[in-house]
Amino acid sequence: MGSRLTGDERRATLVMSALELAKRGGMDAVTIRAVAAHTGVSIGMVQYCFENKEELVVAMAEQLVLELSGSARITFDTVEDRPELRGREGIYALIRTGLEWGWPVIEANPERRLLTYEIMTQSLRQREAGFPRAGAIAVAQREHMTAEVAAFMDECARATGTAWSEPVSAIARFGLATLDGLVLRWLVDRDTEGTKKHLDALARAVADKAVEAPAEDRSAGDGE
């Protein structure tokens, strides 16, 4: 790893190396020593960037989340050219499009999604065994995912002149729980066509929780 890399670049390179090791041998293959050897740096360099394995695993989980949320946000590249996307039908269209953009990422990288669940399961197992620090990884992973989805949903509402009838974090948790089930089922049966029908139903169920925004909120949004 070149000495001219910034701290963020070093961390990103180490995270990608750890993900590659996990892809080959599962999370048990991810150690500070193994990541150092795979990346071609000293153990001290890895420990400089990540104090311990738990911190590295949190960064791995965040990277997996960003890979999905980044693809969904491509949806907004076309919003300004589609003023007809208003109201509940508009928000349904945006959420459906976001899911459509994100799903190919899942299909192209099934091992990444398996790692997402492996990280969570391992973390929860360690928490039950009496290691709360390790268990906090699952909490951090879920909170990060919920925050990303909630931000996406807030943008959808702003773009369509709508508001959420429930706290957006609660709707985001509902959407994520449903999506988790669909991803796990697809990992088992690889039924893409059946999954796409369920994704459409998920988009509709979430959109049904939207209402027309108060007049003052719409006016503020139009002035942005």
Rank of each mutant, 00 (worst) to 15 (best):
V105F: 01
W186P: 00
R4Y: 11
M120H: 06
M1E: 11
G221W: 10
A61Q: 08
G161Y: 12
I137D: 05
T75F: 07
L199K: 05
E84V: 09
V46F: 09
G40V: 11
R125Y: 08
S69I: 04
R125S: 08
A147Y: 04
M45R: 15
L85I: 10
E118Y: 04
R73Q: 06
L66M: 14
I95L: 15
P132E: 13
Q63A: 13
G181I: 00
R133H: 06
A134I: 09
R190G: 05
A36V: 02
L187A: 06
L56G: 00
D189K: 06
G135I: 01
G40M: 07
G102R: 06
L66Y: 15
R185P: 00
A12V: 00
L182I: 02
Y48L: 12
E80I: 15
R133M: 06
V183Y: 01
G223C: 06
S3K: 12
S3L: 14
T162P: 01
C49R: 09
A159W: 14
S17Q: 13
L56C: 03
R73V: 02
A203K: 04
R82M: 15
V168K: 09
T116F: 09
R11K: 15
A163F: 02
H198T: 02
D200I: 02
R127W: 15
H198S: 03
